[in-house]
Design a binder for these strands. Sequence first.
DNA 1: TGAGGACATAAGCTGGTCTTATGAGCGAGG
DNA 2: CCTCGCTCATAAGACCAGCTTATGTCCTCA
Lengths: 309, 309
Amino acid sequence: MSEEYATDDGRPHGSLAHRVPDLGALELLLAVARLGSLGAAAREVGITQPAASSRIRSMERQLGVALVDRSPRGSRLTDAGALVTDWARRVVEAAAAFDAGARALRDRRDSRLRVAASMTIAEYLLPGWLLALHAERPDTAVSLLAGNSAKVAELLLDGEADLGFVEGLTVPAGLDSAVIARDRLIVVTAPGHPWARRGRPVTAQELAATPLILRERGSGTRQVLDAALGGLARPLIELSSTTAVKASAVSGAGPSVLSELAVGEELAMRRLVGIPVEGVPLRRDLRAVWPTGHRPTGPARELLSLTRG
Amino acid sequence: MSEEYATDDGRPHGSLAHRVPDLGALELLLAVARLGSLGAAAREVGITQPAASSRIRSMERQLGVALVDRSPRGSRLTDAGALVTDWARRVVEAAAAFDAGARALRDRRDSRLRVAASMTIAEYLLPGWLLALHAERPDTAVSLLAGNSAKVAELLLDGEADLGFVEGLTVPAGLDSAVIARDRLIVVTAPGHPWARRGRPVTAQELAATPLILRERGSGTRQVLDAALGGLARPLIELSSTTAVKASAVSGAGPSVLSELAVGEELAMRRLVGIPVEGVPLRRDLRAVWPTGHRPTGPARELLSLTRG
DNA sequence: TGAGGACATAAGCTGGTCTTATGAGCGAGG
DNA sequence: CCTCGCTCATAAGACCAGCTTATGTCCTCA
């Protein structure tokens, strides 16, 4: 009876969706924060003022916190409202990235710019780039195909993609490339692991001697690690997705090695901690690739320049 | 009648909420990914199988992409579905952080653990810690009060908070402290800024000589920067919130100096780029604080240990 | 060949959110 | 001093999305 009503399950969480306002409400809150008026915010998101009023009110009831100070000449956020708005902004940004990705995924054919990307890049970086591209060139429709390096190369060489992104150690034959960023692999453990408390860095020998939670052989991450250790990484468990590896590491099964792109959230939330390592070059280049000779032009060139800042 | 059924992207955007599935649907998708069955996923989120089936189907219609392969003996994600699920996970995680924060904000008084935190910590780190705490001690109700260092000190000394978090250079009098993390300040510009393309790092002299977009004097970030430069930071614009500073920097108004906690998203999305700097110690300690003598115990001790991993 | 699991379809109910219409404070200007 | 213009609040009805129950189809396994 500590929780709400019909959640007899009593499990981890009684459905976030019932406790977190929906995206429309969060967007509305951001608009109120920016514009300082319920009515103006309502206009911006395309609803009427009473609807906005009611929606903000019901959000306040749901959260149990006053979010805005209403006055006859405008509405300002309360202190708590400012904090909630910042958290809301993060949710909305994640949703915008979701949307940018989904939009690219939808436009499978006949799009002006067809991008092929490896999974890690498609998952963690591309949505952000697509948002930036959309901001600069709203008319450019982008389509996205995801696969491993070989698949990306094949799509480019077959003329089914205009620009590719890969994260391997080598550039597939027949492609030109440009390094757009460097990714670092990080050794991580759950906070309770002995490595999390020792003072000195882990050495290459220790890392090679310790069974690790890893992606399967052939994955980009595994390739880099094997190369760095001289082909010696010992698997404790082999899993086929980054997500599964993370979940296993968080649960305390053992140390793992993952891209810093993949574990940013877990590190911030202290579900995982990064372990310093010495003597192991755990870096890899992230590259844009295109068929030799076909220098990117038009939207592809634009996207490429965005990725390099 | 809404005038916008044609989703043609001729405008900034036609409301995310209409193009991104709601949180319930995203949670359902995650459950399907994990359990490999619509029915099992439905059971987990507390709805019936037909409801789940319909909901996934309408999400696929909305996104225009097939997400799951249904078969008479279960459902597996398609390739696109796996990617969408990963993006969905990020939205759900942001929502979970929102919920953890809002929950703490709601329980203003009479909670078992009352935390006071500076804005940056409350905004970027605390929700994650609260999630972790909730996972380990689901019954502990936490309340949150946010303010600057002086406010945090006051709350602790008045007995109105059990544990505090501050980010200043000094520890307020009457408090004991422990360093829980180090925050790095980063020089950032919009991708188009000249600094984004030059090869060599910016020097302390250059930084001190360049007008910057900054928080107001007295903010923790500004204090650290002034100290690092010898009190010389020149403001181009002074703004009163980190969000406003970020927005201004993204728009290309000039270089800025911000906490790495605050700009992670912007860096990943390439809306901002980090500029290497040499000869300037842009680090600051993030500290947990408590009244001298009152060593944290119980839930406070638990939370403290989580923050240190 | 029949049991059981998994998903799809159909029909009806419910609740939340929208709309329009209207009222009520506060400030500015004729 | 009164009215206009801005703000937000309230009320009553329409509508739609999503839920439930009941049933049908397909596949696999014993």
